[in-house]
Write a protein that binds this DNA or RNA. Structure first.
Lengths: 117, 117
DNA sequence: TGACTATTTGCATAATTACGCAAATAATAA
DNA sequence: TTATTATTTGCGTAATTATGCAAATAGTCA
């Protein structure tokens, strides 16, 4: 069993402009609160568009667009069943990403807080 | 020695709207090719604004703004020395993030490529 | 077939953002 | 002090994007 994070180390060095844009687009897909909410909802199980819209407090049209963008980046998978369309996580690595960010932000908060102690 | 990614697991669940926006802003800071280039340049050692601008093939004004945004998100640290301002990486975790993304994208490329074999 | 529901898409709008250019600021040296 | 260099910032512009609304599409059932 290989550890992916070690294998991927320094993977970003020497990337072409095109590859760099790909990475930027990937991050862009995660740079929106509603999309992060969607990914959080899909953590436990799949949901259809209407469910997600209701849980996010947004319209189905909006959520549909956000889901399309997430799917375009390979983060979620689309599957129509009956008249509904269900989405589920395609790459669990996303949560590792998000949690790394949460960790960084938490450390910043702690550092700022300790500055006032 | 502890493995940070395990400790941070599921850290994003149940975040407030405000925290979710913080995370979104963090990703937003990484969602720009020039800023990714800057972070790549700072991988090895610190640089001043003029150096970075030249290496990125951009103007100092532009790079200065990008650096300010990166600093605002705690990704780089600013230090004036002489008439120059040097920036260096503040949080090496960024590279883990970027490399995770590169790994995900690489896997997608491989999957797409194998579909045509 | 038509009726019904769920999802997607076209269009307009408001907000954000990257960039170029020029002016302002900061730090040093003469 | 003035001059010089490096960086930052104000302003305008073009491009991108999130959203609302309405229309179009897809799937199921009678």
């Amino acid at each position: 069993m290989r550890i992916p994070t070690i294998k991927a180390c320094k993977a970003m060095e020497g990337l072409s402009d095109q590859a760099l844009e790909q990475v930027a687009h990937y991050f862009q897909a995660l740079a929106e609160p509603n999309r992060l909410r969607i990914l959080n909802l899909l953590r436990e199980r799949e949901h259809n568009v209407g469910e997600i819209a209701q849980l996010c407090g947004s319209t189905t049209a909006n959520i549909s667009r956000h889901l399309a963008l997430l799917a375009k980046n390979g983060m979620v998978v689309r599957e129509g069943r009956g008249t509904s369309v269900y989405y589920r996580i395609a790459d669990a690595n996303i949560y590792a990403l998000c949690d790394l960010v949460c960790g960084s932000i938490a450390r910043r908060f702690e550092a700022q807080a300790s500055a006032f102690e």
